[in-house]
């Protein structure tokens, strides 16, 4: 399969299609190691995803993954603390690319894609659970993997790893684990 020709053709047609249909909503593109992604605005994401799915010439019918990145404390944090990455796949064209959204705060998240793809439901719930991004109009944004008692969203950079120091003979008194005092 000659991927290089297909890929550049697809990149061009996606960019053209979105620029024509949603002017001003595509903020830029990003290609790294041959993988193409587009930055779009959060408010238009739902419409863009729907259009990409329904446009017959592109037919991105498969939502592979939704993933979030926290850029807290990085030099580029001012561009938006959280980044949400939607990986889309077109089975017909065997082409995969990523839609990326950068948001400054977890409350200004894009609209949920549950209506478009069934798989988005759990993936978005997981993003909310782990990173605390509140997708709009999600039917059931509740905890999915973490413990019910856990407060906070573990994958945020300001949530520590909660490393528990192992007890050895050299630090026996400092890290004392007894049945009465199981923590310390």
């Amino acid at each position: 399969m000659n991927l290089s020709i297909d890929a550049s053709f697809m990149e061009q047609s996606i960019t053209d299609f979105l620029n024509n249909k949603f002017p001003g909503k595509v903020l830029g593109d990003y290609t790294y190691r041959g993988q193409f992604s587009l930055y779009v605005t959060a408010d238009a994401l739902y419409e863009i995803a729907l259009a990409l799915k329904e446009e017959a010439a592109l037919s991105f019918d498969f939502l592979v993954d939704i993933c979030s990145v926290d850029h807290l404390g990085k030099a580029w944090e001012s561009e938006g603390r959280y980044e949400i990455v939607y990986t889309l796949l077109s089975l017909e064209h065997t082409y995969r690319f990523m839609l990326r959204v950068k948001i400054a705060d977890h409350t200004v998240a894009p609209q949920s894609l549950c209506d478009i793809w069934h798989s988005a439901n759990w993936l978005e719930r997981e993003v909310w659970d782990m990173m605390g991004i509140e997708f709009k109009k999600h039917p059931n944004l509740t905890k999915i993997v973490t413990d019910d008692d856990l407060e906070g969203h573990p994958l945020r950079k300001d949530f520590g790893l909660v490393y528990e120091e192992p007890q050895f003979s050299h630090n026996h008194d400092e890290v004392l684990i007894t049945p009465d005092n199981p923590n310390h």
Binding site: D149, E151, G152, D158, F159, G160, L161, V162, Y163, E164, E165, P179, N181, P182, N183, H184
Partner: peptide, 15 residues
């Protein structure tokens, strides 16, 4: 009852 350790969210161990 048997004691679940309480850890604070900042990741430090409760002393």
């Amino acid at each position: 009852v048997s004691g679940q350790p309480h850890r604070n969210p900042s990741g430090e161990l409760n002393k």
